[in-house]
Design a protein around this nucleic acid. Structure first.
Lengths: 196, 196
DNA sequence: TTTACACCTGTTTATATAGACAGGTTCCGC
DNA sequence: GCGGAACCTGTCTATATAAACAGGTGTAAA
């Protein structure tokens, strides 16, 4: 299928984006027509069908304002901000969600799954200060030297990660903090994610 | 006014956010009721009125899906990405907009107005590489040492800014580039914005 | 007890809106 | 000149939806 859009169709797409940015919701046919400077809502309807046919948008039949921008343009839905994590609970339990931030995941690699509010100054030498938000990619594996979100017993911390056969060493990025050594045979340790 | 929300009202807010993240549009009363697990759309309506009264949302009367989250929760509308700027045209001319990215403006200070795609390696020593996006706060004033987006004659560049009585010096952050000296009396110079 | 409030189930009505049809203009390639 | 594509003006109708009304339950404070 030929996905190239005409000049006018690009203007239509832009008008839809502007409407979403302005009101928080996609426009109706008449709103869109007004934004485009035409007097008939049907002109907008025709444009929408053309755009849907080319895959630039998706139309939800029978729903008011049922216009969705194609995935590549809109996927930056938003990430939850996690505050303090209570002991013994999974990080992503809904109760911990403090807020939502719209971040473009493509700015990071690998893509983050949530934002963790960091408490304490143990990582300040790599620019992670008390109260900062750290973008975290949820994973159970990490390589030596990476910055990880780890759970020791019931506590969640952010540190630089090193492992050997039966031990894990977590180093802070602040000379005031001692490296932490965990014996995997006696202590409960789990990786929650990777700082990105 | 007392703006504290009840537990149930927080759930309602969250359901609205989820609906927006999922479909791109705020929910209707019935959709919201279904999401909340209640059978009457009027229950949703009552919640919306209560939330609107407390300032958490704004209701647009007579508009389908006319629910807007309060400014503090939603203002991250999105910023245009500016590509190459053609000679003699303002930076924000619509023709230059390559894309849109949803960035939370509160991550930067001062708040950025647009994202500029940087070409060339002249600022690589401060982490601005070829093809990177630079968040720009549109302004006409800058202090010595700040990173600015400047226009010399008809060309737009990113450099570190120093000025004296009649001259402006633009320094690159790469030893391979020479500082640029502009005589304000003979050359056309304008500040476009500040890198943030 | 009374009052207020948060929360719910229903029903009804006016209107906002999607979606379809008929027809017109301009431009471009054949 | 012909056909088609992109674009527009109108009008009509079924339905999705906002918005209001009547009434119920439980809880907490006065």
């Amino acid at each position: 299928m030929d996905n190239s859009l005409t000049q006018r169709q690009l203007e239509v797409l832009d008008a839809i984006r502007q409407a979403i940015a302005l009101t928080g919701a996609p426009p109706t046919r008449s709103e869109l027509a007004r934004a485009l400077g035409v007097s008939s809502a049907n002109a907008a309807e025709t444009h929408l069908r053309a755009l849907a046919k080319k895959g630039a948008i998706t139309l939800l039949p029978g729903a008011a304002r049922g216009i969705q921008l194609a995935a590549t343009l809109t996927e930056s839905a938003g990430l939850p901000v996690i505050g303090r994590v209570a002991a013994g609970q999974p990080v992503l339990a809904t109760g911990h969600i403090e807020d939502w931030h719209r971040i473009d995941p493509s700015l990071f690699h690998p893509p983050p799954d949530y934002l963790l509010r960091v408490h304490g100054t143990s990582m300040q030498d790599v620019g992670i200060l008390d109260g900062d938000l750290l973008a975290v990619h949820a994973t159970k594996v990490a390589r030596n030297g990476q910055i990880v979100v780890a759970r020791i017993e019931d506590e969640v911390t952010v540190k630089r990660y090193f492992h050997s056969a039966h031990h894990v060493i977590l180093k802070a990025e602040n000379p005031e903090f001692q490296p932490l050594t965990i014996d995997l045979r006696t202590q409960n340790f789990a990786l929650e994610g990777l700082g990105v």
